[in-house]
Write a protein that binds this DNA or RNA. Structure first.
Lengths: 207, 207
DNA sequence: GGATAATACGAGCGATAGCTCGCATCGACT
DNA sequence: AGTCGATGCGAGCTATCGCTCGTATTATCC
């Protein structure tokens, strides 16, 4: 197999018809990844599920990995938007309220499409999407660091970089793990306690 | 392909010769996973790298997944041993010292073979090893919960289950992420600060 | 040394994967 | 209506994969 491991689209969809094709492909890919798993998600199957031929798939994506990478990118965009919105809203609020909002948002973001999220997380390493995801993390990290900077007066003296790393990583992990492995914690009554605890974790650490 | 997704070994190695074969296979699998990745780690390649024939591989493992699962299991045993040792040692020590030891141990455990660790973590979902890993997490969780129970007097009133979940998940994530994505934080001078911060995170939360 | 069980071998089978390419159809513009 | 690029099609090529099985080699025991 000659080296063509590109991840970027082969061409951009110009007309409405082709945009619909690409959308159908991404939609179908997400569906199949969830219902069949990565290994059974062959390009032929994806194309068939999208009501499209393999040939068309390869008009817009240079490889199977590229298709999955596109799905991941779209999902990431959705998640990131949630984070950005909340951080903007929280920017002017005091530390305890802001952190609480953030924690709640993290859970909310993970709830967008948990099953897809799980599959995507598992398959990220196989696709060229690792850098994308890393960039996503970097942005979250930077946004939260900026938030901390703005509220420095309310913190104990800290290394902002390290504090942001520890905070973001912890919140991400707790919410992520809860959503993926502990649905019991996320029942409508229990989720409040999880938010309380995670907020306390971060606040107790920061001040 | 008829359904035979077993993960347990096909037969146990009786003679020294065959035990050597199995060892060579596991060793080679680890090497290839690290250097080539899961997709290029075909059974033929693994066998060749082990200086053994595919036929021999299938004498001891019913499938490729089973080989990888065995590598994961071995790695998990190593990690778990570290955790158990430290928790035993920490059991009788006060909270702040005990937690600190645990955090240090978590970093130490992740350092056993980071590159292999990373690949294995990435490939766990594809193998039948998910339950094994879940069991591993459950044990860590239970051990730490027991530790908390023993030191309940030093804690604020907490739901032990929830507190153990939040603590273990956070420490795991911070150390894991640091080892895999932030080698800068783990330089010999910086690692102390990471331990300090993570310890503070957990202690501030627990009391 | 001969018999038997354990272990090792590796050519090759069947299946499926990713992907190409020559051709058909559609749609925007004149 | 006619042109031509954009889009869509899908049979089928090549590569590789996981895995089997008949055979060869080695160890063990009498």
């Amino acid at each position: 197999m000659p080296p063509r491991p590109l991840t970027s689209p082969r061409k951009i969809a110009a007309q409405a018809r082709s945009r619909a094709t690409v959308d159908a492909l991404l939609e179908a890919t997400a569906r199949i990844l969830v219902s069949e798993g990565f290994d059974r998600a062959s390009t032929n199957r994806i194309a068939a599920a999208a009501g499209v031929s393999v040939g068309s798939l390869y008009q817009y994506f240079p490889s199977k990995e590229a298709v999955v990478a596109a799905v991941i990118a779209r999902h990431n965009r959705d998640l990131m938007q949630v984070v950005r919105d909340v951080l903007e809203e929280a920017a002017s609020q005091p530390l305890d309220e802001g952190v609480r909002k953030l924690v709640a948002a993290a859970i909310e973001a993970h709830r967008i499409d948990p099953t897809l999220h799980r599959v995507l997380v598992e398959q990220i390493p196989r696709t060229g999407a690792l850098e994308d995801v890393e960039a996503f993390n970097q942005e979250t990290f930077a946004l939260f660091r900026a938030y901390l900077e703005r509220h420095r007066a309310e913190l104990r003296p800290v290394d902002l970089d390290l504090a942001a790393f520890v905070s973001v990583t912890s919140v991400e992990a707790v919410t992520h793990t809860a959503v993926l492995h502990r649905p019991d914690i996320l029942s409508d009554e229990a989720v409040g306690r999880l938010v309380d605890e995670t907020t306390r974790l971060v606040l107790g650490y920061l001040r």
